[in-house]
């Protein structure tokens, strides 16, 4: 298994989440509304970050599936805050040069007459740097 200690520590630092508190109950994944869209699920994010197995996460579409609905944060019995871990990994990915997940050119094709500004603003904040 790939063990990237530097990335691991960096992700833990910017997320402010303590992954070592996880007791492997899987409640984050049980509660996740985007579970079916994800290749790696919230509990795997926590576990893989703890193990330093981060490359697969950085390259996974799962990063862009988390809704930041914070259900996992509120329901985790251990206070691990999985959503913050996912966010930290996503930032690690998109902060690289040219790694934005969407561009303005993608937008006209996906908006309709009712699309609220909020949707575009949120998506850009989540997907781009």
């Amino acid at each position: 298994m790939h063990n990237n200690k530097y990335l691991r520590d960096e992700i833990i630092r910017i997320s402010g989440a303590d992954v070592s508190k996880c007791m492997r109950c899987g409640k984050c994944s049980a509660t996740c509304p985007a579970y079916d869209e994800m290749e790696y699920h919230p509990h795997q994010f926590v576990n893989m970050v703890e193990c330093g197995d981060i490359e697969p996460l950085l390259n996974s579409e799962s990063l862009y599936k988390c809704l930041s609905c914070f259900a996992c944060i509120d329901r985790c019995p251990r206070g691990v805050q999985p959503a913050k871990v996912v966010e930290a990994v996503r930032l690690t990915a998109i902060r690289k040069q040219g790694a934005n997940h969407i561009t303005a050119d993608d937008i006209p094709a996906v908006v309709d007459a009712d699309t609220p500004q909020q949707l575009l603003v949120s998506a850009f904040r989540k997907y781009t740097k």
Binding site: G26, K27, S29, A30, T31, C32, Q44
Partner: peptide, 11 residues
């Protein structure tokens, strides 16, 4: 009931 099955890696 929405739950996780960690062994099967399924919701």
């Amino acid at each position: 009931v929405q739950a996780s099955d960690l062994i099967a890696n399924k919701q």
